[in-house]
Each structure stands twice: as C-alpha cells, then as structure tokens.
Amino acid sequence: MSPKEKMSFRKANKEEVMIITSAIAEFGKNLPLKILENEKILISKNREKKVFLVSKEVYRQFVHIKKNETPYFIGVNIGEIGKNKRFKLSIEGIHEVGKHTKKKVIVSDKGEQFVLYGHSILKKSVLRIPKNLKKGSNVIVANVYGDPIGLGRLHVNSEEIHNLKDEDLILINVLDRGWYLRKGG
C-alpha cells in the first residue's frame, strides 16, 4: 500500500467471498472454514481490492468510527483480489494458510535464508515436499520448524524431484517474509 492512499472499506460481496474461499480451498478443503469462520471480510475500496479479516468486536467499533473517520488499516490483511478476479495471498495470508495446510514444502536453514532474501529454491534446499503436486501449483514454504516463511510456485511436478540435480530449480519465490525487511519500513 503506498503511504499516500487513504483506505476505505466495505463488506465483501458474494462473488468476492467465492473468489477468496475457492482460492484458500486450494490449500485444503477445510481451510476456508478454519480461516474465515467468525470473521467479517472487508474489502478496501481503492484501486487495489485488499482483503481484510476483522473480528466481530473490531467490526462493531469500525461501524461506529467510520461515521467520523475513515480508517487507514484494519484487522489482518490476508491478500488482494486482482483485476483478473483472482485472489492473491499476502504475507499474513500465507501465515494463516500455512498454519493449517498440508501443501507445505520444508526447506533447510540455508534454504530459509535464500527464501528470505527473495531467492527461489533449488533442490538442495528442499528437505520435504508433498507428493502429487503439479508443476505450477502454489505451495507454502516453511522452515525446519514448520513456520510459514513464504509462498512458492512449483517449477516441476513434485514426483520428478528425485530425478533432478542439487542445483535444479524447484520453487519460484512468489512472496516471502523478507518483504518486511526489504519494503516493510
């Protein structure tokens, strides 16, 4: 979010809820329920449609406050809906999904450093990868402790990894928590 723009929020409509739900469901059928239950979904009215999860308590205060003041930020930003009507996870969206999903690639300590520098992942950094994942699918990248540190796109089918060399590219880095250092301010 550029610091200049002022946010303003509205509730997500049915279509937007569908887009968000189905994108999250790609990481596990029960995930939308786990992540979205008990939360209000707000969308920023700016050019970028950012998606925010807000508890009922916070929502109640929001309704009250917005009569006098437009909030700049609220709750937790889990991603945004692009012009192509696709939902893209934000860093904290990755964290939410990463807590529950099985679509998780575990990388070594070295690999973690690479990811947090914004680099993509080579075979030698991959400690564990789920079976039956297709090339092009999105997976959560986690460190040896299982903490989600980023989102990667598979460059190969996960079954093929055994035939590859140490230096071969496995995951393209889509977004990682190093963002907080590079751009977070």
Partner: peptide, 21 residues
C-alpha cells in the same frame, strides 16, 4: 503509519483499527 502497519502485520496483531488523524 506505513511502518506501524508493517509491524502490526509482522507481529500478528489482528485487533487494531488504524486511523490517520
């Protein structure tokens, strides 16, 4: 405010309404 929001997100804070005023 930009740093504030970045820190809120990084630290997993969910219950905040940020006002620029």
């Amino acid at each position: 405010l930009k740093s504030l929001c970045s820190n809120l997100s990084r630290c997993s804070v969910r219950n905040t309404i940020v006002l620029h005023t």
